[in-house]
């Protein structure tokens, strides 16, 4: 009955999260009841199931009967939207990285690799902004198309033979974590890269930044870590499932973040004028302890994650 599970999984893709399991169970029960009732000797159960599925309709059609909400993007257009998203997500960063590298070389032909890497890292926030803008524009175009098109006139070719296989090792995604991860990363990139010195002590119309230039040296690494985390969380939002590969990547990222936390704990990143002026030496000490605890937690978390994924049973 793998065919049935493959079909149900595709229906689930178009359903709200809270309805997925229930609707899937109901439909499974219906199909199995019907198959049990089947007594045609000329046809195998698998063929009968295939006919039933064709009769029942494409996963999209079935799911739409369960939904009363009017989506911003027509379900029929979703695959095209995601395809365009994928193309943009690859082409825009690649093109901008290429242009940045070209710009660096055009300014000075004798560029060291380290300098080039640093310049590319600095460009990450701008690339991210460009990517978000491009994706936003495409989304708006598709939203406009969804208003203009008649869903009944869009062809929805479907045959059970072409149902995608059940992905192995699919793990749950916390939407909360994915949204917070993406939004938090965005805020971080904006505040530290576009508003440097915003985190400061303000007095007598004077702004004294809280962090010194040592922090700026670590910032490119933080940018990489945050950007990759955002990409991963964005991917989770899109796929709504994790795999062993993405969880491994998550763990590697966590180790990388842990190393950055250790760097932060060792670097003297606070502005001496503020620390000494306000007599708050306790802050750097607490910060150092916090960073070390965070780093240890990140390392342990990464190990636990890997152990859980490779030892735990498959769940969905």
């Amino acid at each position: 009955m793998k065919l049935l599970e493959r079909y149900l999984l595709q229906i689930e893709r178009y359903l709200p999260r809270k309805d997925k399991a229930e609707v899937s169970d109901e439909l499974r029960s219906l199909f199995l009841d019907q198959l049990e009732d089947y007594d045609d000797t000329d046809q195998t159960k698998e063929d009968r199931l295939k006919d039933m599925i064709i009769e029942f309709g494409s996963p999209l059609q079935v799911a739409m009967k369960y939904r009363n909400d009017k989506p911003i993007i027509l379900r029929e257009l979703e695959p095209f939207l995601f395809m365009v998203f994928k193309i943009i997500s690859i082409s825009v960063p690649s093109a901008l990285l290429f242009v940045t590298a070209l710009g660096v070389y055009s300014d000075n032909i004798d560029v060291s690799t380290g300098f080039l890497v640093l310049e590319l890292l600095k460009a990450i926030p701008s690339i991210f902004m460009a990517l978000v803008t491009a994706l936003g524009i495409v989304f708006l175009i598709f939203a406009g198309l969804s208003r203009a098109l008649d869903p009944n006139k869009i062809e929805d070719d479907f045959h059970p033979d072409y149902l995608p296989p059940i992905p192995v090792d699919v793990y749950k995604v916390s939407m909360f974590e994915a949204i917070i991860g993406t939004a938090g990363g965005l805020v971080f990139l904006y505040v530290f890269n576009y508003q440097p010195g915003l985190i400061a002590v303000y007095y007598d119309n004077v702004r004294e930044p809280l962090l010194n230039s040592n922090f700026d040296k670590i910032l490119p690494f933080l940018n990489v870590s945050v950007s990759l985390t955002m990409l991963l969380q964005g991917y989770y939002l899109f796929k709504q499932s994790k795999s062993k590969l993405t969880i491994t990547f998550e763990a590697v990222l966590q180790v990388f973040s842990g190393i950055i936390l250790i760097l932060l704990s060792q670097a003297d990143i606070f502005n001496d004028i503020i620390i000494n002026g306000f007599n708050i030496e306790i802050i750097p000490t607490l910060f150092k302890i916090g960073m070390i605890v965070g780093a240890v937690a990140a390392f342990i978390g990464a190990i636990v994650k890997i152990v859980k994924v490779f030892l735990a049973k498959e769940k969905r």
């Binding site: 109901e26 439909l27 029960s29 219906l30 009841d33 029942f56 059609q61 009967k65 369960y66």
Partner: peptide, 28 residues
């Protein structure tokens, strides 16, 4: 009734109903 038995009952009374219509209706 469970879903399939309801379909059968309705069919017996001469009311042909698509199952992919009945189940969302029951849910609603």
């Amino acid at each position: 009734h469970y879903g399939y038995s309801l379909v059968e009952t309705l069919n017996k009374h001469g009311l042909q109903i698509d199952q992919n219509t009945l189940y969302p209706l029951l849910r609603r």
